[in-house]
């Protein structure tokens, strides 16, 4: 009986310990919201500013705060390398006072044609709980008018012409 009780107490203790960690991970110090745009449907090359509102929801000052963009490619089910989109740099916010709100503009340039979800994340070095916003849909519309046949013809004919010219020159030299 004593043995069972000990096991029960140990389990209860472990459960309590685990719940504690889970609780700590659930607690976010921020709220983050994309104010504008609500959705994007633009051609590649367009530069946008994503306006984000970040709020410190705690009663304490939070240091070393920064925010950044993430994009998920819904057409290919992968995240995007934002260096191509000139959006790989986080924006440093610094210190946020208790219940302080900050509005930040995150720049991004649209590049590859596809459907995406764009969301923003706020991070503080002091807390491992990461907070992300609700995503906005981004559609980068394809607008290429390149005719593949034209490209194929030029890409084949030009080197061939020069190769023939090279052979003629070599023959003349001999």
């Amino acid at each position: 009986m004593k043995k069972y009780l000990t096991i029960l107490i140990l389990f209860a203790g472990l459960l309590g310990f685990n719940t504690g960690i889970a609780k700590a991970q659930d607690t976010s110090n921020f709220t983050i919201e994309i104010l504008s745009p609500a959705k994007v449907a633009e051609y590649p090359g367009k530069e946008l500013k994503i306006k984000v509102k970040i709020t410190n929801t705690t009663d304490q000052e939070i240091k070393n705060v920064f925010t950044y963009i993430t994009m998920a490619n819904l057409s290919k089910n992968w995240t995007v390398n934002l260096e191509d989109y000139s959006a790989d740099q986080p924006v440093t916010i610094g210190t946020m006072k208790p219940h302080e709100e900050k509005i930040v503009n995150l720049p991004i340039q649209l590049v590859y044609t596809a459907d995406y979800y764009l969301y923003t994340t706020v991070v503080s070095k002091e807390n491992p709980v990461i907070t992300s916003s609700v995503a906005i849909p981004v559609k980068i519309i394809g607008n290429t008018k390149i005719v593949p046949l034209q490209v194929q013809i030029v890409s084949t004919v030009m080197p061939l012409l020069l190769l023939v010219l090279l052979f003629i020159t070599m023959k003349i030299k001999r």
Binding site: P44, G45, T113, A114, T144
Partner: peptide
């Protein structure tokens, strides 16, 4: 630009 899928998604100014 016309055969690699990733590159074919680029817009003309970038190409």
């Amino acid at each position: 630009f016309i055969s690699v899928k990733e590159l074919s998604l680029l817009d003309q100014p970038t190409v």
